[in-house]
Design a protein around this nucleic acid. Sequence first.
DNA 1: CGTGAGGTTGACTTCGGTCAACGTTTGTGG
DNA 2: CCACAAACGTTGACCGAAGTCAACCTCACG
Lengths: 225, 225
Amino acid sequence: MNTDIDQLDQIVNHKPKLEKGEQLYRAGEKFTSVYAIRSGLVKVVSIQGSGDEIIHGFYLPGDVVGFDGIAQAQYAMTAIAVSHTSLCEIPYSELSHLAEKVPKLNTHLYEIMSRKINDSYYQAQLLAIKSAEERLAGFLWHMMERFRVRGYIYTEFDLPILHREVANYLGLTPETVSRLLTKMHKSGVLTWKKKHISIHDIPALEILAGFNKEGSCSQACAKGL
Amino acid sequence: MNTDIDQLDQIVNHKPKLEKGEQLYRAGEKFTSVYAIRSGLVKVVSIQGSGDEIIHGFYLPGDVVGFDGIAQAQYAMTAIAVSHTSLCEIPYSELSHLAEKVPKLNTHLYEIMSRKINDSYYQAQLLAIKSAEERLAGFLWHMMERFRVRGYIYTEFDLPILHREVANYLGLTPETVSRLLTKMHKSGVLTWKKKHISIHDIPALEILAGFNKEGSCSQACAKGL
DNA sequence: CGTGAGGTTGACTTCGGTCAACGTTTGTGG
DNA sequence: CCACAAACGTTGACCGAAGTCAACCTCACG
């Protein structure tokens, strides 16, 4: 077991930190590696001809980005550091070579990718859910949950992303996000000031996210991610 | 090469056909197999406590469903046959066992899963795109493209799904879908009558889907799926 | 300081959802 | 094979949630 980890360690390159706004990889570039995030925050986007971007996901420490590149041997998306970020580069050729000798690694990779598939199902669900309030509440609840399962403090955390970016991710406008945050703040559910989030009333947040009316399924589903 | 295929053939169970409406697997069930679709159409949904479903994807012959189950050793979604469907069951334990001996199989599986990840990125993009018209046009264009890359006739094809289901998938209402289809029909872009689609004006469809204003990226990206 | 990016708030508009009535197709049983 | 029912599809009138536009505020940073 430990030797497996050791072998993995040998192929990992510890990349220097990325500054805010720097690109990790660009859509269309040759696919070479996946990256494990050690600290910071990365957003994965696709960039339209008009220049604006569509945000497909935010990735926290412990997440792995770059799997979008496997299918076509080139990255399908662009990954950008949202804050100062340090990461590990894992060259794919060496990874798959190693995986041939360590079946457990394959199993693990399948799990990661399967989880990503379920993740995007969850996002699709967020977007298909009607109201803006449910989307935003659902998004914030999901972020909270991600901190929780990682064993971090989850009622208070930093989220160094702009309202504009959340709006983009949820298919809303910054104005709507702002209005909803004001509303949630006034009703004592949570506060988001200066890139810091404090959750005050988790049950209320879950109600806003629409968990109650859908029964336990949605919440349980989301929790699994 | 051929022997690899032979080995794969040995672990595949050729399931009898599924009737319309029958479930292939249910969310929460123990994960055992993935399924390759031979003919017909399968939808993958999550079912809410309220009883209604959220449709996450439609799968055509040649697609493989069931990867949602890997992450947690149980299916995260429910798969339902939309029309009479025949498929191959591929037991996952035997698949991963075989993959240990045939590295190429792993590579292939990674590609399939990576493609699925990109697929759901594309759906998220559809949902995040503002207008109902762009969503519907984008959806229809994408279906057409899927027939095209499979080498089928792609300006005429059967799509045995209800308006209600497309609406659900796109986060719209059946009424809106109906109105838009009427509009597209009148303007000579395409016709969808009796579960049969005829595309008359592909460039017009692409404009409706918003490909022009986003430059080549979105279209190229979607094509890769 | 001043400047510019981001956030907030308000007035107005619009797209698409809702509700309801009606038309059409499908499938079933007599 | 027809008749009926139920599900699906279409169309219209209306309404509300969220987008747009604009003005103003706040804060970080040079």
